[in-house]
Design a binder for these strands. Structure first.
Lengths: 95, 95
DNA sequence: TTGATAGGCAAGTGATTACTTGCCTATAGT
DNA sequence: ACTATAGGCAAGTAATCACTTGCCTATCAA
């Protein structure tokens, strides 16, 4: 469960989640290409692959094999609870 | 802004936030004592102090000086948005 | 003023982490 | 069969991070 927090700690992984939030079922190479295009992030294939493994271990990404393609999909369920943990009934004043 | 995610990545810091969510305006020593009591966490004073600095830099903790005491208070405002980032309109099916 | 309490600063250490490098497997097109 | 494409595995490197260690300042009580 703490894996979700660790997974979100890295900016590259957050960009990957952004990418998957925009479009589901992307392959590793698609994600790499889009990361390089949108951000100036020149992350290598292996780096992104390891990030995806970590995101999958945290339950934030689900994968599906199809031939030589592996599609990655965002799973937002683990995100729902994490912020609620410290949000108390006591409302906070606005800035 | 990414500091919030990094701040939440460490389990000790999450325990500190738990502690401050239960009771506001705690000093460094109070937090240390409560961490040691509730969890088996034997974190040193300096370790907790550095965690509090990091939490304050992330905007999750606000401090107030009073004589030789420094009181720490939880600020939940940065937490409100972080999970929303990837929560799309597209609803996800239940497990 | 002396001693105790609350906290701060900064260099150093050990572990974790992000990323690279090199090579290997499998599927698909020709 | 041959080649290109999509991806995997594992060891090594460099940077980050959590924590320690040692000493210092400030406030308060006696």
């Amino acid at each position: 469960m703490g894996d979700v927090f660790k997974a979100l700690a890295d900016p590259t992984r957050r960009h990957i989640l952004d990418e998957l939030a925009e479009r589901d079922d992307q392959t590793l190479f698609e994600i790499c290409a889009r990361l390089a295009a949108k951000h100036q992030f020149t992350s290598s294939r292996q780096a992104v692959s390891q990030h995806l493994d970590l995101l999958e271990a945290a339950g934030l990404v689900r994968t599906r094999r199809e031939g030589r393609y592996k599609f990655h999909t965002l799973d937002t369920r683990p995100l729902a609870q994490i912020a609620q943990r410290w949000l108390r009934d006591k409302p906070q004043e606005n800035p």
